[in-house]
Amino acid sequence: MQHDEHRDLSKVDRNFEPYEPYRPVPLLLIAVACSLAIWGALTYIDNLTTAEQFVSRITPVSAEPVMPAAELAEGLGNASPETLTLVQAGRDHVWSCASCHGAAGEGTATTPRLAGQLSDYLLKQLVDFRDGTRDNAHMIYVAKALDEDEMHELANYYAQIRLPSRVGPRLDGDLERGRQITHEGDWKRNVPACVQCHGSGAEGVEPSFPVLAGQQPEYTFSQLAQWHAGARGNSPQQLMDKISQAMTPEDMRAVADYLATLPLDGAPASQIQ
């Protein structure tokens, strides 16, 4: 019978080993892993030393007492009570603008100065944060809690604040190189002069080109770096993406520091044509 044939134990292979035999990991695979590990370790050490050098180069902030920005600013009360509440106290779980950007919108380090910024530009950024076309966890959280009218009012409020520049170079950038990029550009790298679009004193050009003069240098640098790395993508026509990608980190530091030296009183800096 066919059944019996199948049960014929004499046909069973007695040497059959049901477990996978041990096979050593191929030598080349370990070798590749080793080379990657060497690469990784060296990159890590390299980054570590660069970061240390960078931190050590940053000029320590002066310990002298400075007058609070709110005492020098004009226009801090020029908004509806609702808007001022958003600015100063926030709403529900959403924190106030002033809690990060300062009592007069003066900003600090990588938190940008808002005082005197173009209204249209500020509004576009709020909308972009809300719509997810500009990335920043804090600002997305805040912008989603605002309606369009509130965005308009906040943008108008910060645009009308008058506050002298409160920053200077802090990134140890090459100021002469920064001046060159700001006023002449580096066309061999396809980098136009900042002032060509942002105004002859980098004072901003309505409606799309924001004020750069007197901005926190850390913020300017961080934004250039984000465009350079593709982390910020809401510049119209990708203008700043491509310009930043053509810039070296040294150039970004130089230009961020130089822009921080420019005055905000409308008086053009020297060398402006």
């Binding site: 030598l27 080349l28 070798a31 590749v32 892993a33 080793c34 080379s35 590990a37």
Partner: peptide, 9 residues
């Protein structure tokens, strides 16, 4: 493997 890895690197 380490030696070959170094050479590869």
């Amino acid at each position: 493997a380490g030696a070959i890895g170094l050479v590869l690197f």
